[in-house]
Computed example of a mutant assay.
Amino acid sequence: MWQVSTREIPVPRSHYPILLALFVTIFVVSNITAQKGVTLGPIITDGAFFLFPAAYIIGDVLTEVYGFRAMRRAIWTGFAAMLLAVLAFYVAIALPSAPFYEAQPAFQSILGLVPQIVLGSLVGYLVGQTLNSYVLVALKRRTGEKSLWARLLGSTIVGEFADTLLFCAIVASAIGISTWADFLNYVVVGFVWKTLVEVICMPVTYAVIAWVKRSEGY
């Protein structure tokens, strides 16, 4: 019996690929759910409000444990994945429907991402995540391993504000926001909500960062 000798490149045991996959998935899914404008009483937001803050939490873990360069790779991976998703959606929409397929209008309505929203999301994402990571690393150079809460909070405020302002400014008209009052509501609610979620989840972020550091032999 012949035995074929094969060579394989060993895969390092690390949590980075899993965190990267979660980070990219949240970003892509958020861009789809953000197509829906949402009103909760006096609050105006979008369908991604409950999910997107998790991207910043995971981004904090990636930056704190693996550094700015690894986080920058994650940011560009998410950017490329979103572009691929948009291209795939439009190709699928353009393909001729089978005679028995009657859901083309709904399919096109849901996955025909509005270019204005995609642009706003990509711009906000690139600027916000980059600032979030840069500020966290800059603060870490000053504080070392101490004051993790200050690094997480400071980086979140800067990153989330830039992300929210740019995103809202670009996409507001696409989801029907036409007055300054509604725009300010959209920006303030988005920023406060995302920042509040990260503050509430900070104990979890602390625990995840500590666990990943221990697992990775930090």
Rank of each mutant, 00 (worst) to 15 (best):
M1L: 14
M1Q: 15
V4Y: 11
R7A: 13
V11C: 08
V11Y: 04
P12G: 09
S14H: 08
P17N: 02
P17T: 04
I18T: 14
L20G: 01
L20R: 01
F23D: 00
F27G: 05
V28D: 00
N31K: 04
T33K: 07
K36G: 12
T39H: 13
T39W: 11
G41C: 14
G41D: 08
I43W: 10
I44P: 03
I44K: 13
G47C: 08
G47I: 06
A48G: 14
F49M: 06
F49N: 00
F49S: 03
F52T: 04
F52Y: 08
A54D: 06
A55T: 14
I57F: 15
G59R: 05
G59T: 04
D60P: 04
V61P: 02
L62H: 07
V65Q: 05
V65T: 09
V65K: 06
V65M: 10
Y66D: 06
F68T: 07
A70Q: 07
A70H: 07
M71L: 08
A74V: 03
F79M: 02
F79R: 03
A80P: 07
L84Y: 07
V86F: 06
A92V: 05
I93K: 01
L95F: 11
L95N: 07
A98I: 06
Y101T: 10
Y101F: 14
A103T: 13
Q104W: 11
A106H: 10
F107C: 08
F107N: 04
Q108F: 12
L111W: 01
G112K: 02
G112L: 05
G112W: 01
Q116D: 04
L119V: 06
V127E: 01
G128H: 00
S133P: 04
V135C: 05
V137E: 12
L139S: 05
R142P: 07
R142L: 12
E145F: 12
K146V: 08
S147D: 14
S147K: 14
L148D: 00
L153W: 06
L153H: 05
L153I: 12
L153R: 05
G154N: 01
G154V: 02
V158G: 03
A162M: 09
D163A: 06
D163T: 05
L166R: 08
I170S: 09
V171T: 13
A172P: 10
A172V: 10
S173T: 12
I175N: 00
G176C: 03
I177G: 04
I177N: 00
A181T: 11
F183I: 09
L184Q: 11
L184K: 15
L184G: 14
N185E: 06
N185D: 07
N185T: 10
Y186C: 01
Y186D: 01
V187S: 13
V188L: 11
V189L: 09
G190F: 03
V192L: 13
V192A: 13
T195W: 08
L196K: 05
L196T: 14
I200F: 10
I200C: 09
I200W: 05
P203Y: 04
V204L: 15
A207N: 08
V208Y: 11
V208H: 11
A210G: 11
R214V: 09
S215T: 12
E216N: 15
